[in-house]
Design a protein around this nucleic acid. Sequence first.
DNA 1: TTCCCGTTGGGCAATCTTGCACAGTGGGAA
DNA 2: TTCCCACTGTGCAAGATTGCCCAACGGGAA
Lengths: 193, 193
Amino acid sequence: MTTGLRERKKAATRQSLHDAAVLLAAEHGVESLTVEAIADAATVSRRTFSNYFASKEQALLHHDRARTIRLVELIRARPARESLMAAVIGAAEQHSTEFAADPEQEERYRTLRLHPALLPELVATYAAAERDLAVAAEERLPAGPDTPLRAQVLAATLLAAFRVVGQTALERRERDVVDLLRQALAITREGFC
Amino acid sequence: MTTGLRERKKAATRQSLHDAAVLLAAEHGVESLTVEAIADAATVSRRTFSNYFASKEQALLHHDRARTIRLVELIRARPARESLMAAVIGAAEQHSTEFAADPEQEERYRTLRLHPALLPELVATYAAAERDLAVAAEERLPAGPDTPLRAQVLAATLLAAFRVVGQTALERRERDVVDLLRQALAITREGFC
DNA sequence: TTCCCGTTGGGCAATCTTGCACAGTGGGAA
DNA sequence: TTCCCACTGTGCAAGATTGCCCAACGGGAA
């Protein structure tokens, strides 16, 4: 909120490129989408597009990447005394209040997210988040010889749960993600205990 | 129309600063207007404002300056065979089709334009246009010993007529400026012949 | 196959914007 | 009066955008 003008404008440009990409892809198909068209729609040069995203796939999936990065950020920022699960729940609560998006844009995004051409990028996004979350998780686990493994497994399973919750929420047009997440965590616990 | 992105964005920023200045001045008065407020409203830094305008007065009167500059430009661009008067009429015709503005903005501008604090700037604007027009007029007058004087007088009287026509059109919410201008020119002719 | 062309990613210089610093100004309170 | 403070204009460096460049890639026509 107290960020400078420069930072705010960068965020706005990135968002505007993402929005333009999603809109154009929904209108004319992911296949026929070009970087130039996205840049034009965002009133930005083709070169500037490259300064923000390495590919149109990244631009299209920026929403997912931003969300996951933010989630890990929020988990990290929870009080150190909280257990991993408590931190995750707490962060999810905060997380669900952010990212208020235009319903129509969300609708378009929903139909595009799982397009085959985007899956590699989507997988890479979650893989990166998984690595980051594993690091963060390690700090909230009791030290022990198998802590790294446990952190990785928990990061993977937590993100998997998150992925399903997010997908389900998207399909059900559900806003209250926290309840869904609690359910998912309970299910995981039951399944493994 | 075929201008580059950079140029278009500069024009947009200049226009946006002008619009913000007019809006804020109409809302809170010319006296309490600050450069910082204008820059903020245009989502631009205070330093950037200074890159476009030397003062808030210039920002407020940008519309007049742009219009007069454009008018002289159009007069210059008329075919060389046209007489001065024909060129002026032709240019005025083209001119009246440009500068389509938001009615509300025009309303605000109308109440501000003649504010005492802006008069020096307004006078300077017309003086500059007068010099430019005199140069342009000279090229359309038959050569003679008194051509420079005639060019200056005609430039001054033409712009005076224009000023009155513009003011009248603004007050009458009149779009068809050409007819008014023809009337004005006729009046001048009658008055001096 | 070979060639052509649209698309892409990125290097580079020119230009524009931002953020910061500093001096000058003018108005109002002490 | 003197001091204070908001506002302004401008120099400067860092960062961002643009425009132009070229090399690489892939799909389709000859």
